[in-house]
Design a protein around this nucleic acid. Structure first.
Length: 506
RNA sequence: UCCUCGAUAGCUCAGCUGGUUAGAGCGACUGACUGUUAAUCAGUAGGUCCCUGGUUCGAGCCCAGGUCGGGGAGCCA
């Protein structure tokens, strides 16, 4: 029977058989250390010539990275090891020998890694990210199912844009033009009128030629829709939802977060209440007219410039120091490698900092001149959330920049009853939602204003004719929340095979 | 679409003011070593300097155009 590494602690002192791949190998005469991975975890296996005999040990010496083996041995507690245990191998069977593995135990560039995504997924870090993604999906379903929501799927082929603002992927549907769905929102409203509380969870496609660390062309979105909910109830639900998911990950993905070296102090703060601020107030904060907890947006950026410059000087000094050490010629080979790797890292850090320095004046101008009827840019979102340190909810948006279906405020019709949730630590918008317009005449007017084809919205307007009720919903980008919770540099690491501008393989 | 940076060994990079035969580390391979944590030590092999054209006695380096990639803007989850 095969045992999985994840449950190894239950087999202490017993003989088990593990089947997996060689993640790393170190050997010396008569002794080999194999880091085995089986998908459920990683464990060091010790193979000795004395135990196996020369004939059985020889094939083990020939094992290459990612070769497949079946190892039988005794589970021994060993505090030095990552999982706390190691396997003393008594029998080894080689299943297959791998060719030279392209991904080495060192730093690679993003393009190389994405070209080898099918293999990169095996690495420890990517393994941890995919486990977190899996658990987030599980937690999302748990949250909504326990509250009586029904999962209902929206179609992926659609006849028209539901918002009309972003670019769509065009395709052919039996000779008719069709588009890949950019949102299940309108269908969600129809389904909520049938089941009361629903959520959709499916892929979404956007042909925006975005080349940033926040965008994918194909991503997964969860879109709940609730009958008889107004904006305040919507915001209460969003807050409870995000708090639930984050608490679940903190409780159930300790090993994964540790592997990712995720500092969880910011995630712990998510249990605090999310500040709710109007778009108008957020604009004042951005322009530096209003301070938050004694912090000023513009002054923070000025300080960033100074901090970045100081850090660049410090990096340069450290590089010079390490280069001098290497030139000294007294270091051992390992120490030289260590110093060289540190120099590479520092050089990359300088590159990033210099890019930041170049961008800060742009971000500063964007914040300082922020217009009341504007949408936030990526940098504006970063500035706002850094001032707070928890997720924040920005509500009551200028209607002109929001979708046609968003409800107009009854006191000021130029205001849309929408809400965006901005994640801390620079991750920006993870949720967009709001209350839906129920006034059929107003909807018709807005569809015309947005120059959308009226005939495509006949069924949608029907929802206002038959049992019209106030309702709200929101959309959450799965990859964005994975990115934030794992604190990743780039969203491309959050999905097994990313599809983004310029990337369709593997 | 715009701004900006880049492309040199399988990988990560260095290559000075344009000058002889192209450099390092890692990885691979061969060997040594019985407790390694990116093991260590010795050795071996490995190059279309992204493409096209130009300047020059001479181009990895300079110029023009292109291709691909990173970061950012716009747009968005």
């Amino acid at each position: 029977m095969t045992t999985y590494i994840r449950e190894i602690a239950a087999h202490e002192g017993k003989v088990v058989t593990l089947k997996g791949w060689v993640a790393n190998k170190r050997d010396s005469k008569g002794l080999a250390f194999i880091i085995l991975r089986d998908g459920s975890g990683f464990i060091q296996c010790v193979v000795s010539e004395e135990t196996l005999g020369a004939d059985n040990f020889e094939p083990i010496k020939r094992l290459t990275m990612e070769s497949a083996v079946s190892l039988t041995g005794t589970v021994v507690k060993d505090e030095r090891q990552v999982g706390g245990f190691e396997l003393q191998v008594s029998e080894a069977i080689v299943i297959s020998i791998a060719e030279e593995y392209p991904i080495a135990k060192k730093e690679h560039g993003p393009d190389f890694l994405m070209d080898h995504r099918h293999l990169w997924l095996r690495s420890k870090r990517q393994w941890a990210i995919m486990r977190v993604r899996n658990r987030i999906i599980f937690a999302i379903h748990n949250f909504f199912q326990s509250k009586g929501f029904v999962q209902m799927d929206a179609p992926i082929f659609t006849a028209n844009a539901c918002e009309g603002t972003t670019d769509l992927f065009a395709t052919d549907f039996y000779g008719e033009p069709a588009y890949l769905s950019q949102s299940g929102q309108l269908y969600g409203e129809a389904m909520a009128m049938a089941q009361g509380l629903i959520y959709t969870f499916g892929p979404t496609f956007r042909a925006e030629k975005s080349k940033t660390r926040r965008h994918l062309s194909e991503f997964w979105m969860i879109e709940p829709e609730m009958a008889f909910y107004d904006l305040d109830m919507d915001m209460d639900l969003i807050e409870a939802f995000i708090q639930y998911v984050v608490a679940d990950i903190l409780a159930n993905c300790k090993v994964e977060l540790e592997t990712l070296e995720r500092d969880t102090t910011m995630l712990e703060k998510v249990k605090e209440k999310f500040p709710r601020i109007t778009h108008n107030h957020a604009a004042k904060i951005l322009r530096g007219e209003v301070d938050v907890n004694g912090k000023n947006a513009l002054k923070m950026l000025e300080q960033d410039t100074i901090d970045s410059q100081t850090r660049i000087e410090a990096c340069k000094a450290e590089i010079a120091e390490r280069e001098q050490k290497i030139a000294g010629g007294t270091l051992k080979k390992g120490e030289i490698n260590f110093n060289q790797a540190a120099i590479d890292r520092l050089k990359n850090e300088i590159k990033d900092l210099e890019a930041t320095l170049e961008n800060i004046p742009v971000w500063y101008a964007s914040a300082k001149n922020f217009a009341d009827n504007n949408d936030f840019g990526g940098s504006d979102e970063t500035i706002l959330t850094r001032l707070f340190g928890t997720p924040i909810m920005v509500y009551n948006w200028p209607g002109e920049i929001k979708a046609f279906y968003m409800k107009a405020d009854k006191d000021d019709p130029s205001i849309a009853r929408g809400v965006d949730v901005l994640a801390p630590e620079g991750y920006g918008e993870i949720v967009g939602g709001g209350e839906r317009e129920t006034d059929a005449d107003l909807l018709v007017k807005k569809i015309n204003e947005h120059q959308l084809p009226m005939e495509a919205f006949g069924w949608y307007l029907d929802l206002r004719k038959f049992g019209n009720v106030p309702h709200s919903g929101f959309g959450l980008g799965l990859e964005r929340i994975v990115s934030w919770i794992c604190k990743l540099d780039h969203i491309r690491e959050t999905i097994p095979f990313a599809r983004s501008y310029g990337r369709i393989t593997p």
